[in-house]
């Protein structure tokens, strides 16, 4: 059996770079979608908002400053190869990367230590939320994103049961977006998780927001549902910045999982147009 090593410092440096990059440089998928929407948007105010967002994102990239002041709570999806040894503490290496990105990169520190009582700012944006999956292999793959809470607060989960069927799924997703209305900084990206357990479903919805919007679910039935939901959401009229228009969402991404015979949970994680995520793969050196 071969084993591989990765330095904790490399993990820290990679995580730091991912969080700085995702906050400075909007993804090509989002930029392309904003530019397309600007061509088709019927509302004059809507077109003006889209122009400002494009200008904003170009400015942020050119000056390497955050494109939004809410640089988010740090969320990471990690695929950790089971043949990899780290010369240190993996969790701490990740948290240190987040700390360095938010302090050195002029990102906003938006995390409080206790959710209800003191609510004191931790001053370095830690702790990050780390979803780790052990996979077969000799690398560590990290997808990192800063999740703003203007849109996070508009998210919802419902434990639907099988008799609701596809119509029930659609209704819950559309109702959630309708309730969010102009608040989550439209045009939004809608991440949907269907199946699993309560917590797995929510995690899938988050994972869906980390997928590029120029991709589709590999299952053609869900790919079609993504398209159908996007069309329906863009009939709601909220438009760019919620001021009225045809561009309420840029994309709908669905992720699914097997579930229990009694269940059909659906989670909707709403993300603003600053759908920030970057990925990297660290290759282990053979021991």
């Amino acid at each position: 059996m071969k084993y591989y090593t990765i330095k904790a410092q490399t993990v820290t440096d990679t995580v730091k770079r991912l969080f700085m990059d995702c906050n400075y440089f909007i993804g090509d998928d989002i930029m392309n979608a904003l530019k397309c929407a600007k061509e088709t948007e019927e509302s004059e105010t809507g077109r003006s908002v889209l122009s400002q967002l494009i200008e904003n994102d170009e400015l942020a990239a050119a000056e390497q400053i955050p494109l939004c002041q809410d640089t988010g709570m740090a969320v990471l999806f990690v695929e950790y190869g089971d043949k990899v040894c780290i010369d240190g503490d993996f969790e701490e290496a990740v948290q240190e990367g987040v700390r360095r990105a938010y302090i050195d990169g002029c990102l906003r520190k938006s995390v409080v230590d206790d959710p209800v009582f003191e609510r004191l700012n931790t001053k370095d944006n830690t702790p990050a939320i780390i979803h780790t999956r052990i996979v077969s292999g000799s690398t560590i793959k990290i997808t990192a994103g800063g999740k703003g809470f203007g849109s996070e607060n508009m998210s919802a989960i419902k434990m639907l049961t099988p008799s609701y069927g596809i119509e029930g799924v659609k209704k819950f997703i559309l109702d959630t977006v309708m309730t969010a209305g102009p608040n989550p900084c439209p045009p939004i990206v809608v991440g949907v998780g269907i199946g699993g357990t309560f917590e797995r479903c929510a995690q899938l919805a988050k994972k869906a927001t980390f997928r590029s919007i120029d991709t589709h679910n590999p299952d053609p039935r869900y790919a079609e549902l993504e398209e159908e939901l996007l069309t329906d959401i863009n009939k709601m009229g909220f438009g760019p910045a919620g001021l009225g228009g045809r561009t309420t969402a840029l994309g709908v991404n669905i992720e699914t999982s097997p579930t229990h015979i009694a269940g059909m949970p659906v989670a909707v994680n709403i993300c603003c147009h600053a759908a920030r995520h970057k990925s990297a793969e660290i290759k282990g050196e053979e021991l």
Binding site: N56, L59, H273
Partner: peptide, 26 residues
Amino acid sequence: AIGGAAALIAKSIKKTEPVCYEDLGT
């Protein structure tokens, strides 16, 4: 104001000074 246009909006803010509650940071 346009949500998400933070870098652009900052261009129109020329100066800032503290008023109160500095313990609240941002």
